[in-house]
Computed example of a mutant assay.
Amino acid sequence: MSQKKLVEIYMGSDSDLKVMSLTAEYLKKFDIDFNMYILSAHRTTDAALEKIKTAKDRGVEVVIAGAGKAAHLPGVLAAKTNIPVIGVPMKTSDLGGRDSLYSIVQMPTGVPVATVAIGKTGARNAAILAAKMLSMKYEKIEKKVLEFMKKMEDEGLKKNKKLQELGYKNY
């Protein structure tokens, strides 16, 4: 992995760690180093703001923030930095994550947050989106992204070939 930590992962609670660890795992697939924090927009506001205000000085180029329920963390971070922020809505017991999704995706003009799917898929996609963003600047990451995309294509074609050979009833 690189020396410089290009990505920071934030989450509002340790209950988000199981999902956000998938973001970390996927960043590792692309050899992207990261920092990870549990900092809440509501419970540790000052610490979260201090961390995001100094992120650019640490070489951070993309921020990924997971949050549930009111899900203010991605927006609060985006309001205090010009670094792109990707929001990961957490699945919640109350509304299945729709509350988180709406809180993250409905940002006011001037404070955009790229928003991915709810939960585990979103956590993985946030890392892939970050890798694609960074691949515009870093050839090594671009190579990994292209390899990842080729592998997905190959797997899809393999499944189609099997379906064509076996038919849908025997697949």
Rank of each mutant, 00 (worst) to 15 (best):
E153F: 08
M20I: 03
K120W: 02
A48R: 05
L6M: 09
S13T: 15
D94Q: 12
T54Q: 14
R43Y: 09
L146M: 14
V145Y: 04
E50H: 11
V105Q: 02
G59T: 09
L49P: 01
L129E: 06
K4M: 10
L17D: 11
A114Y: 01
E147S: 12
M1Y: 09
M1A: 13
M20D: 04
G96R: 10
L134A: 02
S103L: 07
S93T: 12
A41E: 11
G156H: 10
L134S: 04
K53L: 06
S100K: 06
T81V: 08
A55D: 09
G12D: 03
V76H: 04
V88N: 00
K53V: 04
K132H: 05
V85G: 00
L166M: 14
S40N: 07
I64N: 01
G110F: 07
E155C: 01
T23W: 00
G75T: 07
A114F: 05
Y26G: 00
V60L: 06
L163R: 14
T115L: 06
D31F: 07
A130T: 05
N160Y: 14
A114G: 11
T45K: 15
K132A: 11
V145F: 04
D16S: 08
N82Y: 11
D94P: 00
K162V: 10
A24F: 00
S15R: 10
A131V: 05
T23F: 00
S2T: 14
S2Q: 15
K29N: 14
Q164Y: 12
K5N: 09
L49N: 07
L166C: 07
T81Q: 04
S21K: 14
M90L: 15
M36D: 05
G59W: 10
Y26L: 04
T23P: 01
D99G: 04
A127G: 06
V7M: 03
T109F: 11
G156E: 11
D14I: 08
L6I: 02
I32R: 01
K162Y: 05
T81K: 04
A71H: 03
S93R: 13
P89G: 07
I83Y: 01
L163I: 14
V19T: 15
